[in-house]
């Protein structure tokens, strides 16, 4: 799915009960390859656990480039579309942004020019998973491996230092490294493929 060979692979080994804490990383977005013109539903359906039922019933709030979207057959366009997924949200604002909501009329529709022409070229989608969607579908994505910027990962650990303690083993580009050296080791690396594996005991 993500076949950029230049990105070093970072594999973290955790106890299974610590994996959910790492799903919060997905709020920043991970990069996933797709192709222009592919519908949002088809794109998501290729990811682990994103069955069509899950996409239509549980993913209640979707933003494509910051605009709330109702139609799951909306095609992905542009070079780097940003797709954010959330469960249903509280409050009037939550109801306004919810897919096919009665209150959708209260949205502001930004005046964006969308080119009609769709070329069937590859694109990189930044996928953000929020709240229960991250918790439910994040483990599958992280175990599969996702492409993120090193900075995102380093910032995440810097703000949540207790998470570093939870890591049992770190492998970077096929070598076992000391977790305390991670920030320094990633200093000159722009992007990594992050993979999390879990172990018992």
């Amino acid at each position: 799915m993500d076949n950029q060979p230049t990105k070093p692979e970072l594999i973290l080994t955790l106890d299974p009960q610590d994996l959910p804490f790492y799903t919060t990383l997905l709020q920043s977005g991970v990069e996933i390859k797709g192709s222009e013109g592919e519908t949002m539903a088809l794109f998501l359906n290729r990811l682990p656990g994103f069955t069509l039922d899950y996409i239509s019933d549980v993913v209640q709030t979707i933003f494509l480039n910051g605009t709330a979207v109702d139609d799951l057959t909306t095609p992905l366009r542009g070079k780097n579309p940003v797709l954010a997924l959330s469960a249903a949200m509280p409050g009037l604002a939550g109801a306004i942004f919810r897919r096919n909501s009665f209150h959708a009329g209260l949205r502001t529709q930004p005046d964006k020019k969308v080119s009609k022409e769709i070329k069937n070229r590859p694109l990189t989608v930044t996928l953000k998973l929020f709240n229960s969607i991250a918790l439910e579908r994040g483990p599958g994505l992280l175990q599969m491996g996702v492409s993120i910027t090193s900075r995102q990962f380093v910032d995440f650990l810097a703000k949540r230092d207790t998470l570093l303690e939870k890591i049992k083993q770190v492998s970077l580009a096929n070598s076992i490294v000391n977790k305390k050296d991670l920030t320094a080791l990633l200093a000159d690396t722009k992007k990594i493929k992050l993979k999390i594996s879990t172990t018992h005991g």
Binding site: T61, F63, A84, A88, M89, P90, G94, F130, N131, S132
Partner: peptide, 24 residues
């Protein structure tokens, strides 16, 4: 209601990411 589980888990602060994403 599914929102009950979400509100119980994250509280109303669950809105930060979503409202930010919307540019609101």
């Amino acid at each position: 209601h599914p929102l009950t589980a979400g509100l119980g888990q994250y509280g109303t602060n669950v809105l930060v990411n979503v409202i930010n994403e919307a540019g609101s």
